[in-house]
């Protein structure tokens, strides 16, 4: 059979925008303030792990601009973020309750305590890539319902190897569903570097295979991330999915149990570009405001620490009560037996 002419339309060129990027001062301050909260939370959470308060923690240090910048571009009245386990900046960017969120890291409840419909982000979970499909299905529903809402799917260079991500990109492109696939290319999947993970080195390059536009952006410049995500969301609402690849670096370990010196050198870490927090500080360009914002961030995270330490216990009944909306008789019996056998009075 003769080779048919290629029907693939050239995807729209969305980045960089012709008129450049301008983000107003108020927005920049809002972004910077939440980046500071994220950084302080990360720094403190590592300490809390060392003090035995948290069993483990996966810091997002270095990814604040990518996470906060993209999350704050969302319209919380109609959009939804689908996250995994290293996206606290998204949680902060959406002003979601941090104590509820930390319930997962405190080993109280896998997924935390937030209601996804209220906080506009999915519970965190461990199977990376799987949520890209949820974003696609959720986005398709918005299209059916005519809400104008869009989904943003967060994943990294590692998760981009998962089949689910490719199935999601293809499904979304075929159905023109409003999804922004937001890749945080942070250079590392636990200990595996980018060159062993992503053939060609760019996840965005894959978008063209699904006939969707892609944007490769500086993930450490919060203004750029915010503006790019806004452009992507508007495109997604009208035309269908977009890939954003935000280049950043995981400056900390994969998790508190990790030892990066086994797979990367201090020289490499030192050779990095500027810290996204310093980039934000220059963008804001107001040292007096910055000092106050730092203090507010410390206070906000301290409030989380106080709430976390006031003993919040989990009721063992929850283990049975949330498996189903309508509990099976077997589970009712198991719960009764659990109550009888653990009632030591």
């Amino acid at each position: 059979m003769p080779v048919p002419p290629s029907s693939a339309a050239q995807p729209a060129q969305l980045w960089p925008p012709q008129n450049g990027v301008t983000v107003d001062v108020e927005t920049l301050r809002g972004l910077a303030e939440r980046m500071l909260v994220t950084r302080v939370l990360d720094t403190e959470a590592v300490r809390w792990q060392r003090q035995g308060i948290l069993p483990a923690f996966p810091p997002a240090i270095g990814q604040e601009a990518a996470q906060v910048g993209s999350a704050m571009a969302l319209d919380r009245a109609r959009d939804m973020a689908f996250i995994t386990y290293r996206d606290h900046g998204v949680v902060v960017g959406l002003d979601s309750d941090l104590t509820d969120y930390m319930g997962s890291h405190l080993a109280l409840w896998n997924g935390g305590f937030a209601d996804p419909n209220k906080v506009r982000h999915s519970p965190l979970q461990a199977v990376v890539g799987a949520t890209a499909l949820h974003a696609m299905g959720w986005a398709y529903a918005q299209k059916l319902d005519g809400t104008g809402g869009a989904a943003i799917a967060y994943f990294g260079d590692g998760a981009s190897s998962q089949g689910d991500v490719h199935e999601a990109m293809n499904f979304a492109a075929v159905s023109k569903s409003p999804v922004v696939f937001f890749v945080q290319n942070n250079g590392w999947s636990l200990s595996t570097p980018l060159d062993l993970q992503v053939a060609g080195g760019s996840v965005a390059a894959r978008a063209s295979g699904y006939s969707m536009p892609s944007m490769r952006i500086d993930g450490d410049d919060v203004g750029e991330v915010y503006a790019a995500t806004q452009i992507a969301l508007e495109h997604a609402r009208e035309h269908g999915p977009v890939v954003i690849e935000a280049f950043t670096y995981r400056r900390g370990p994969h998790a508190t149990s990790d030892d990066p010196s086994r797979y990367r050198s201090l020289e490499e870490e030192r050779a990095l570009g500027p810290d996204p927090i310093d980039v934000a500080r220059q963008l804001v360009a107001d040292e007096a405001w910055w000092a106050e914002a730092e203090q507010r961030a410390e206070q906000a995270v301290d409030a989380v620490r106080v709430q976390m330490q006031s003993p919040r216990t989990i009721d063992g009944n929850d283990m049975f009560d949330y498996v189903f909306q309508e509990k099976t008789p077997q589970l009712v019996k198991q719960q009764e037996q659990w109550r009888e056998e653990t009632d030591l009075d």
């Binding site: 499909l133 299905g137 529903a141």
Partner: peptide, 12 residues
């Protein structure tokens, strides 16, 4: 993809 899409639809 079919089942992941179903999960997203159910969430909505």
């Amino acid at each position: 993809g079919i089942l992941g899409m179903a999960a997203g639809l159910a969430m909505a």
